[in-house]
Amino acid sequence: MRLTVTGLLNGCLLLALGGCAGAAMEGANMAKDEVVYENNIEAARAGQVEAQYRVGEALCCSLGDRKGFYDTRAATDWLCRAAAQGHAPASRKLGRIYSGEVVDGVRVMRRVAERVSGRPQDRALSYAWLSVAAGQGDAEAGAEAQTLWGDLDEAERARAGGLTAGGRSLPCRWDEAFPG
Rank of each mutant, 00 (worst) to 15 (best):
T4G: 13
V5F: 08
V5Q: 12
T6N: 12
G7P: 09
L9P: 12
N10W: 13
G11D: 14
L15G: 11
L15C: 11
L15T: 05
G19V: 03
G22E: 11
G22W: 14
G22L: 14
G22K: 08
M25D: 08
M25L: 15
M25A: 14
G27A: 13
G27C: 07
A28S: 15
N29A: 11
M30N: 11
M30R: 15
E34M: 15
E34F: 09
V36I: 15
N39A: 14
A43K: 13
A44Y: 10
A44V: 04
A44L: 12
A46M: 02
A46I: 00
G47R: 13
Q48C: 04
V49A: 07
V49C: 04
E50W: 05
E50V: 04
Y53M: 01
Y53G: 00
V55D: 01
G56Y: 02
E57Q: 04
A58F: 06
A58Q: 04
L59A: 11
C60E: 07
C60K: 07
C61W: 04
C61D: 08
S62W: 02
S62R: 03
L63R: 13
G64L: 14
D65I: 04
R66M: 08
K67W: 02
G68R: 03
F69Y: 14
F69R: 13
Y70G: 14
D71H: 14
D71Y: 06
D71A: 10
A75S: 15
T76K: 02
D77C: 08
D77M: 15
W78G: 00
L79M: 15
C80H: 00
R81P: 01
R81H: 09
A82W: 10
A83Y: 13
A83L: 10
A83N: 09
A84Y: 10
G86T: 09
A88V: 07
A88E: 05
P89C: 03
P89N: 03
A90Q: 12
S91M: 12
S91E: 12
R92G: 11
R92Q: 14
L94I: 07
L94W: 12
L94K: 03
L94G: 03
V103R: 06
V103G: 08
D104R: 12
D104G: 07
G105K: 09
G105Q: 10
G105Y: 14
G105L: 10
V106K: 09
R107Y: 06
R107T: 02
R110M: 08
R111F: 01
R111P: 00
R115L: 07
R115P: 01
V116M: 11
V116Q: 11
S117T: 05
G118N: 09
D122N: 14
R123Q: 03
R123M: 02
A124I: 00
L125T: 00
L130D: 10
L130N: 11
S131D: 10
V132M: 03
V132E: 02
G135P: 04
G137D: 01
D138E: 04
E144T: 00
D151Q: 13
D151E: 14
L152K: 00
L152F: 01
D153Y: 08
D153S: 13
D153M: 05
E154M: 07
E156S: 05
R157M: 08
G161P: 02
G162E: 03
G162M: 01
T164W: 05
G167M: 06
R168Q: 04
R168H: 04
R168D: 03
S169C: 01
L170G: 01
P171A: 07
C172F: 09
R173S: 06
W174S: 00
W174K: 00
D175S: 09
A177S: 08
F178V: 01
P179R: 09
G180F: 13
